[in-house]
């Protein structure tokens, strides 16, 4: 009986390892899709380095807004944003155009990208939870 224990331990450790690895793989893949979309749709305003432009377009790199409002990102990306918005203590007030034709998985890739590029750190967001967030946009 006792002899099984180490085997069981090794198997479960192996499974656990595989799982985290699969999750990391998913995240990496999503982030790289996100980069491609970012280069098409966002880079002209927020910049390759994510620093924005003057006080016209807010930074995404090191943005406290992204850190504190992870659930609102999907809506901003798909439907845009208007009116005053504060990022890192600076008030921005230009319209950001939406991208209403984006599919839920594309929105998810973009969210994963901006949450993990330029030194930003975020959890992997799955498509399901993006779809759920998109139900609640104003």
């Amino acid at each position: 009986m006792k002899g099984y224990r180490p085997v069981l331990f090794i198997i479960s450790a192996f499974i656990l390892f595989q799982c985290t690895d699969a999750k990391k793989l998913k995240k990496d893949r999503s982030v790289s899709h996100g980069l491609a979309l970012y280069t098409q749709l966002c880079v002209q305003c927020h910049g390759e380095d994510g620093k924005g432009l003057g006080t016209l377009y807010p930074p995404l790199a090191g943005s406290d807004y992204i850190r504190e409002n992870p659930d609102s990102l999907a809506c901003i990306i798909k439907y845009g944003k208007d009116g005053p918005l504060e990022v890192n203590g600076v008030l921005y007030n230009q319209p950001m155009p939406g991208n209403p034709l984006l599919l839920d998985d594309e929105v998810a890739h973009l969210v994963n990208y901006i949450q993990n590029a330029w030194g930003n750190k975020g959890e992997y967001i799955a498509i399901d939870s993006i779809s759920a967030s998109l139900q609640n946009c104003r």
């Binding site: 002209q44 305003c45 910049g47 432009l53 016209l56 377009y57 230009q94 319209p95 155009p97």
Partner: peptide
């Protein structure tokens, strides 16, 4: 134009 979403931001950079 100031609200131009496509090429103007790059032009301004």
């Amino acid at each position: 134009f100031t609200t131009c979403p496509s090429i103007c931001p790059i032009m301004k950079t």
